[in-house]
């Protein structure tokens, strides 16, 4: 029963989700919307508690066992608690203050201020690393080791050169050729991959609905 109940739930909700695609009736659509949004949000709220529990357990274990770099775990735990307290009791921003004071003079530390001035710049910093990683990945990819890599190198060379004014100066039809590479062979390959993906999605969905694929239940 421990495994049969999830399988029955998956079959019923999965078939309902698929059928709802073909039925525009407002009663069916409202039920589908509730399943997709409301039910999933309620489950997410519960699992978020488990998630926070996981972070705390993980880092307290590291601190307790003095694992390598255990000091950093204190930073995670302290910032987690501080931001939770500020977010829960300090209000969202200066316009909507909470019960706790969240500014010292002109220095504000509302949760929105912290988010805008810490999380977003830190995220942007990580994102910026992408430029350097792209350069290192391109260096590795554009080495003519075999026929495929040579073709990739040639296509990349044409595309890069065709995208800058110099390309047109060297060879007038180069930008058009670069555009053709993107629009025809590249699009054809992408569409081929997409066909495979959608078939894979359909097959995986069917296997899960029918209970053939039980990997998500831990196998068996």
């Amino acid at each position: 029963m421990q495994k049969r109940l999830p399988l029955i739930l998956v079959l019923v909700t999965g078939v309902f989700g698929a059928v709802a695609f073909f039925i525009p009736h407002h009663a069916v659509q409202a039920a589908d919307e509730a399943m997709r949004n409301d039910v999933q949000r309620i489950i997410a709220a519960f699992s978020l508690v488990l998630g926070v529990g996981s972070i705390l357990t993980h880092h307290f274990n590291k601190i307790q066992h003095r694992a390598s770099n255990w000091q950093y775990s204190w930073i995670t735990v302290i910032t987690l608690f501080v931001s939770a307290v500020i977010g829960l009791f300090g209000g969202i921003d200066p316009a909507r203050p909470g019960v706790l004071p969240t500014h010292i003079g002109n220095f504000s530390f509302h949760i929105q201020t912290l988010y805008m001035n810490m999380m977003i710049p830190l995220g942007a910093t990580m994102f910026s690393l992408l430029a350097f990683f792209m350069a290192s990945a391109a260096y590795r990819a554009f080495r003519a080791r075999n026929l495929s890599a040579t073709l990739l190198l040639a296509a990349a060379f044409v595309l890069m050169l065709g995208s800058v004014p110099l390309g047109r100066m060297i060879f007038h039809p180069l930008p058009s050729f670069a555009e053709w590479i993107l629009a025809v062979p590249n699009t054809a390959a992408k569409r081929g991959i997409n066909f495979g993906i959608q078939l894979g999605v359909l097959a995986t969905s069917l296997k899960i609905l029918l209970g053939i694929e039980r990997g998500w239940l831990g196998g068996g």
Binding site: V52, S54, T57, G123, F127
Partner: peptide, 8 residues
């Protein structure tokens, strides 16, 4: 373990 829901 859960880490964070922030992408970067």
């Amino acid at each position: 373990f859960f880490v964070t829901d922030q992408q970067f």
